[in-house]
Design a protein around this nucleic acid. Sequence first.
DNA 1: ACCTAATGATGAGGAACCTCACAATGAGGA
DNA 2: TCCTCATTGTGAGGTTCCTCATCATTAGGT
Lengths: 150, 150
Amino acid sequence: MSEVMSPVEAGQTYLELHHQLHRIVDQAMSSAGLSLARAKVLMRLDAHGPMNQATLAGLLGFAPRSVTETIDGLERDELVTRTEDPHDRRSRIIALTASGRDALQVAMTARSKTMDEIFGVLDPTERAQLVALLKTIRENLAQGDTGCGN
Amino acid sequence: MSEVMSPVEAGQTYLELHHQLHRIVDQAMSSAGLSLARAKVLMRLDAHGPMNQATLAGLLGFAPRSVTETIDGLERDELVTRTEDPHDRRSRIIALTASGRDALQVAMTARSKTMDEIFGVLDPTERAQLVALLKTIRENLAQGDTGCGN
DNA sequence: ACCTAATGATGAGGAACCTCACAATGAGGA
DNA sequence: TCCTCATTGTGAGGTTCCTCATCATTAGGT
């Protein structure tokens, strides 16, 4: 415990949690009707309003191709609409529908509940600590990468 | 910063990093010849010796079906072998080959380098803190779930 | 011995990511 | 104008995960 903590050991611990945590959150949200991936998209649309897929890809840190696919599904389920952009005939504007907004709300409730279960075991000070550490990592990540971060 | 840190906010930060971090590590390792997923399997085999797929699934926290698929690939590339279990005709024993061991070594080097880049920005005390927090989360996770954790 | 239940692996099918290649469009310079 | 280059979205194809159904085998009770 008080041994020297190598980056590799830290990474090991992180990666072990990684998989489990993602699955737990995704499962909880899927049960509520929206997978984590879909919710991520809808959250952005809710926060920033309608936008084209390229912008969405930038915000999410996804490849454009991945956005196409996710939107395909969301459109099929009528949670978003894809309309032409009058100013640029290449681009399609994605917008939340009313059902999309409803679904998002339900999913976010489930999400919060799951987050409480997972991160509620830490006290507020510990959570602040954790977030500070993660942000430090994120900041120094942004250097050599795609730079989409947030 | 000194605001109250809610579980949801902490989770938000965690999930944002999640995707990026996974991709960075996976890409680095893939460039070195072994994807993260494949390396995970090979690491377990290296650490625990030959075993059947169910055991492997338990150790990894994967669904058995996922192990079958990953092993298919590894076997195709001759990094592992699948042999009959003389004591149980349902089961197949997975074992590392020499090439598998070599590939793993190369991949682990790449992995370490990437971990250094990511977690090296924290000092040892911070890393210890991070690991402690993650372990706290993991411990309390094990209650309601598959219980494969490590 | 037999019948039932648990277990090991896999087929089928799906979701969420990716890269690479490409058509259509837009934008800017010569 | 026209030529080139960047950008938007998507087809094609791959990987890594999943669940659910199924088959073969083993194990356990009676």
